[in-house]
């Protein structure tokens, strides 16, 4: 039992999208339909020559008060023993209430076409064989094997840091405790477990 969380250090992200590529490959997400479990926004701010360009990786926040879970009628969205929010593909209705409810844009429909296309690409190795709502799983399947999530493991800029928030010695716990890593919009009361340094 752990309480997994992530810190995203925006000071170093260069928007290379290695994370998106890792996630799409690890989890067979429908990149062909421009759907991603993690995206990297490329935001332009200000006026020349005082322009800023900011890269912001987005991901499911694995909220402790997840709006998606509350609203899900079938309990297809559930919380596992490590506090990560997952979706049971088999019982998901595809009512999309969770998509509407999530304040972080973390969810999308793995629809009929996507399932078919994924089968075409991955054949027997296809991980998505039914229509369902899809989202980040904090790569529990890797974490169980002692690995970091795919996006974290590959991030060349050490932007993404993953660990157990309950373990005071973990890098994430330290960063959160120091106050430098902050949740986004704490006023929404979703209690995200993904924190940003910016």
């Amino acid at each position: 039992m752990a309480r997994y969380g992530m810190v995203i250090d925006l000071r170093t992200c260069v928007g290379c999208q290695a994370c998106s590529a890792a996630c799409a490959t690890e989890n067979q997400t429908p990149y062909w339909s421009d759907k991603w479990r993690t995206r990297v926004l490329d935001i332009e701010k200000g006026e020349y020559p005082n322009t800023g360009r900011h890269f912001v990786p987005t991901i499911c926040m694995h909220c402790e008060e997840p709006a998606c879970l509350t609203i899900c009628p079938s309990q297809a969205t559930f919380r596992d023993e490590n506090g990560s929010i997952l979706v049971n593909y088999d019982t998901c209705l595809g009512c999309k209430a969770c998509m509407a409810a999530c304040p972080y844009g973390a969810r999308y429909v793995y629809d009929k076409n996507d399932v078919a296309k994924n089968r075409e690409i991955h054949g027997e190795l296809s991980q998505h064989n039914v229509v369902h709502i899809d989202k980040c799983t904090f790569c529990f399947d890797r974490v169980e094997r002692g690995l970091e999530p795919a996006c974290v493991a590959t991030c060349p800029a050490h932007t993404r840091i993953f660990g157990d928030l309950d373990d005071p010695n973990s890098e994430v716990a330290k960063l959160v405790a120091s106050g430098i890593a902050k949740p986004l919009r704490p006023d929404l009361n979703t209690k995200p477990k993904v924190f940003y340094i910016y």
Binding site: S74, T91, L93, C95, V109, V130, V131
Partner: peptide, 15 residues
């Protein structure tokens, strides 16, 4: 028309 998986409506009372 709305559900992506109509048959799974049977689970709609789970929560």
């Amino acid at each position: 028309l709305d559900l992506e998986r109509p048959l799974n409506a049977i689970y709609s009372l789970n929560n």
